[in-house]
Amino acid sequence: MLQIKNLTKIYEGGVKALDNVSFDVPDGQFLAVIGLSGSGKSTLLRCINRLIEPTDGQILWNGEDITKASPEEMRRIRRKIGMVFQHFNLVHRSKVITNVLAGRLGYINPAWSLLNRFPKQDIQKAIKQLERVGIADKANHRADELSGGQQQRVGIARALMQDPEMILADEPVASLDPVLAHSIMKHLEDINDKDGVTVLCSLHFLDLVHRYADRVVALNLGQLVFEGLPSEIDDKKFKDIYGRDAERVG
């Protein structure tokens, strides 16, 4: 159970990216986070694993307050939270398999990773994850030789290596074409269904939200403006979320 309580983030310079946001996410839920660009979706997801330090508020995960965790506790928490990014964020010059193995870094003793050593079972596990997302044949290619859709699958495999209990997906399909978008979303859905991993996924297209999400939260200018089922987003709610001039396209 993830509980966000009165979360606020004010950036240096006074921009209020999150304004007193509170909601809960039960274990195993597929939660979509929607809102305009700049509404605070990315900030919200990055506050949860503290890539961004929240200014105020609490994030309770299984009763533990993430915002108060020490660096060592943070390492333990982060390794249970996988993250998938809009621009994939692979290390381009490294091999695909190395990118996937990087998902184990939270478990591995730093002294050994200095020597670039991974345990054998991790390497086998990495191959298995690549098989699961369907690109095991690319394991020894350089990451930047892969197409966008393939790169995002590597990103997912990397998150899976963490044995995650939760995955934060920050607009995972925003730079992909619609067909690829569905294939990536299906992988996330599969992980959510089969492994029982909680997924928080920020999305732009409402048809994807309807198709994949169990529940939706919507942000506008850092404030929570909607919380409920995807089917509850009618025209009025849509204008609340996206502004009066917005028109539905999908």
Partner: peptide
Amino acid sequence: GPLEAIQATG
């Protein structure tokens, strides 16, 4: 980006 991604793994 990659820096952020690696940090996120713990």
